[in-house]
Computed example of a mutant assay.
Amino acid sequence: MISTTTPSIEGKQITEYKGIVFGEVVAGVNVIKDFKAGLSNIFGGRSTTYEDELIQARQQAIAEMEERAAQLGANAVVGVDIDYEVLGSDNGMLMVTASGTAVNIQ
Rank of each mutant, 00 (worst) to 15 (best):
T4E: 01
L39Y: 14
V103S: 05
G23L: 02
K33F: 15
N75P: 03
I42R: 09
T5K: 11
T5H: 03
E24I: 02
E64P: 00
G45R: 08
L54D: 06
S8H: 14
K33Q: 13
V26Y: 13
V29E: 07
M1E: 09
A102Q: 07
S3F: 12
G92C: 02
G44C: 08
R58S: 14
I20F: 13
L39V: 13
S99I: 02
G45C: 13
V96L: 01
V21R: 00
E53A: 04
T97F: 02
V29H: 12
D90T: 03
G45T: 06
L87P: 06
A70R: 02
N104Q: 08
V80L: 09
G73D: 00
M93V: 04
Q106E: 13
A27R: 07
A37N: 12
L87T: 14
A69W: 00
A61D: 05
T6P: 02
K18W: 15
L87G: 01
E24D: 10
S99W: 01
F43T: 10
L72N: 03
R46G: 15
T4N: 07
N91R: 04
A102T: 13
I82K: 02
G11A: 04
T6E: 13
E51I: 14
E85S: 06
G38I: 12
V21D: 00
L72I: 10
V78A: 03
L87V: 03
A98H: 12
E66A: 09
N41S: 14
I9G: 10
K12M: 02
V80W: 07
D81M: 15
K18L: 05
N75C: 15
K33A: 12
T4I: 11
V96Q: 00
V31F: 12
E51D: 09
D90S: 03
A37C: 07
G73S: 01
G45A: 06
E16M: 06
L94G: 01
M93P: 01
A74H: 12
A76D: 09
M65Y: 00
I20D: 06
I62H: 11
A37T: 06
G100S: 10
I55R: 08
V21Q: 00
R46M: 15
G92E: 05
G45I: 09
S3H: 04
D52R: 12
F43S: 09
